[in-house]
Design a protein around this nucleic acid. Sequence first.
DNA 1: AAGTGGTCTAGACCACCCT
DNA 2: GGGTGGTCTAGACCACTTA
Lengths: 245, 245
Amino acid sequence: MEGEAKNTRLLAQPLYKRAEVEMTNRIATGRWPAGYQLANEFALADEFGVSQGTIRKALVAMERRGLLMRSPGRGTMVCKTTQEESLFAFFRLRNESGEMVIPTPAREEISSGDPTSREIEVLGPDCRQVIRLNRLRQNGGTPFVVERMSFDVATCDGMVEDLPLPGSLYPYLHERFGLMIMTVSESITAAVADDDLAAALEVETGAPLLKVVRVARDLSDRKVELRDSFYRTDFASYQIELARS
Amino acid sequence: MEGEAKNTRLLAQPLYKRAEVEMTNRIATGRWPAGYQLANEFALADEFGVSQGTIRKALVAMERRGLLMRSPGRGTMVCKTTQEESLFAFFRLRNESGEMVIPTPAREEISSGDPTSREIEVLGPDCRQVIRLNRLRQNGGTPFVVERMSFDVATCDGMVEDLPLPGSLYPYLHERFGLMIMTVSESITAAVADDDLAAALEVETGAPLLKVVRVARDLSDRKVELRDSFYRTDFASYQIELARS
DNA sequence: AAGTGGTCTAGACCACCCT
DNA sequence: GGGTGGTCTAGACCACTTA
């Protein structure tokens, strides 16, 4: 810790940040799979050559990010993202009582092709070919949302052969391609149903729909998914909590 | 710190939490106004009878909540919520480039009356009378959003005489009534413009609008505002970032 | 030059969980 | 009873800001 730390401390991230990045990578790469029980704070501190207080600062930050679960007596574990939790991690639609609306997959089509200029803008100029996934989901037998997703074929080559894809896509992306979705940006507008959407969602042409454009980013903040979703909002709404600042 | 702490520690909040609550109150009551320079960590620790590390934990948490600004050499200050910042703290509408859309007030009407059952449901059963504020805001001369707000007259008695109200309502609520809005819950659906909305927003009847129902809560988590907003989304959209978990 | 917060360490006691 | 994280303390060095 002596000279080495002093030299690098000026140039690089603080020690707790470096520990956080390294431990995050171990989760992302599967070396620490979901449910994995971490060594205790002193052992980790020893491994990283820092003190227990420093490693704790990294662990607490990762707990706040939702990557770890900590509790006295039991220790620290990697969050087990069940299928359900993961499906709904970014799913903001709730009914009037605030209960989650469960969308079950109904139809899906997958194809690949040349990227549009919009897809290149999001997925990056290196994108040579895209995979497009179209899905219809329903709730209790009623069509609910049409989703149109685009991925760079370079990041998830082989997806077209994996049909039918699982209902929750993000755990699949993680296990199959090592893509761990960490943040999504959503842009919400009001739209009217065109003939295609009206037919799929079983509403009248011109009916109001919620249009949600999503850009999803992975652990290294690379944009990996572009998704347009069209929701009926006659029995559910997009709900969000905003805190000051 | 000796016996006293040992006795209370089992019954009450941790010391850093109690310090955080007390300091938050000082900000809410105006004893520590915006821009106020706090004493340094050792002085605060002394005042609260805890160590510097404990007071720091409270300060860092408050910084994360957006109440304080800290920087080495300069010290810790209460965030100065400028008119602009505060107006936009919960304002999620952005144009295609991600730039804030500035809504300027155009028309406003205020009235009071008996609460509806919906208003009672949100503002609480003790609500005897409500103040209703209707506003039209525009962007660059184009009507942009209709806002219909309800408050319990008990929490902001006298608002009806304060016309014209300032463009950013939340700093006004803080200074005038000590109401500090900390969190808002928003529920977003697609709607179509009825004749009234169409006339106000200068769109055709039946045009798609974003309907945002907001419930705003103060520092003590009391629901103090119910607001229905109807946005045109032809030149802006509701944008939000979601992080994992 | 003096003072601040940012980082890091070391060590203590506690409540909680498991066996 | 042994081990874990939660809390709290005390003290150190650093970079940064301000004067």
